Computed example of a mutant assay.
Amino acid sequence: MITVIEQAMQARLVAIAPKIEIVPVTLCYERSDPFAIRMTFPAPATLEGVAVSWTFARELLESGLSGPAGHGDVRVRPYDGDRTTIEFHAPEGVAIVLLLTAELQRFLERAASVVPPGMEHLYLDVDQSLAQLMRDTC
């Protein structure tokens, strides 16, 4: 049974200059963290020169495909009929990427085959999470 979904995509990194750079990104969904999606940017695409991952709600990505979603560090909205914008807000600045909406939909469909939307609570390991919290406090 599949428990992790990963999908490589080409993202257009929107810069201040008129040039738009294409960078590879990886989306990841894991059954062990059923509410979250992780997007990883490779080292050459980051200010620090190391790979950077952002974790945000699957529901945020789903909602952002049809209309503006998010008020925090990650915001998602349709750009045009074919692309979706994801904004990442950090103290260093804002990164804006454009992704093909069809690829995002395909990723979400694959994630739904691992954990159906609305059923995430059935896949949480509360005992393990509580044990991890208790270890961190000692």
Rank of each mutant, 00 (worst) to 15 (best):
L61P: 07
G67N: 07
Y29G: 08
L122C: 11
R77P: 01
P91Y: 02
E120R: 11
L60N: 04
V52S: 05
R31S: 05
G67Y: 05
K19Y: 06
Q10N: 13
Y79E: 15
M119R: 09
A15M: 09
P18E: 09
L104C: 15
P116G: 08
F56R: 07
E87W: 03
A102K: 12
P68Y: 01
F35Y: 15
G49T: 02
T84Y: 06
E87C: 09
F56K: 04
A111D: 07
G93S: 06
A112V: 02
A8F: 03
T84E: 07
M39H: 02
A11N: 08
A36L: 08
T55W: 10
T101F: 01
I22F: 01
A36P: 01
H89S: 11
R77C: 13
L13I: 01
V4I: 15
I96L: 14
P24S: 14
G118F: 02
P44V: 01
V74Y: 02
K19C: 05
A11V: 06
R38L: 00
E30F: 02
A43L: 10
A69K: 08
V25C: 06
T3P: 02
E109H: 11
I2N: 15
V74W: 03
H121G: 09
P78G: 13
S53K: 06
E120Y: 04
E92Y: 01
L60W: 01
A57S: 15
G93W: 06
A51R: 08
V23K: 10
V4Y: 02
G49M: 08
I37F: 03
R77I: 00
E103D: 15
V76I: 11
F107H: 08
P91Q: 07
L13Q: 12
I86K: 05
P44L: 03
P34R: 08
T26S: 10
G118Q: 09
V115W: 09
M9G: 03
V94R: 10
T55N: 07
R12S: 13
T55M: 12
T84C: 15
Q105C: 09
S63I: 00
E30W: 00
T46G: 10
F107S: 10
V114L: 14
A45E: 07
V50D: 14
L108A: 05
V97W: 12
G70S: 05
E92V: 00
R110L: 14
E120N: 04
Q7K: 13
P78N: 11
D80I: 01
L99N: 10
L60Y: 03
A15F: 00
A102C: 03
H121F: 09
G70Q: 04
A36M: 12
T26E: 14
T46D: 12
L100M: 09
E120A: 15
F56Y: 07
F41K: 05
A51N: 10
Q105F: 01
F41W: 11
I5Q: 11
W54K: 14
E48K: 12
Q105D: 05
G72N: 13
E103H: 13
R38I: 00
L98Y: 13
R77D: 11
A51S: 15
D80F: 05
R12Y: 04
R106F: 03
A112E: 04
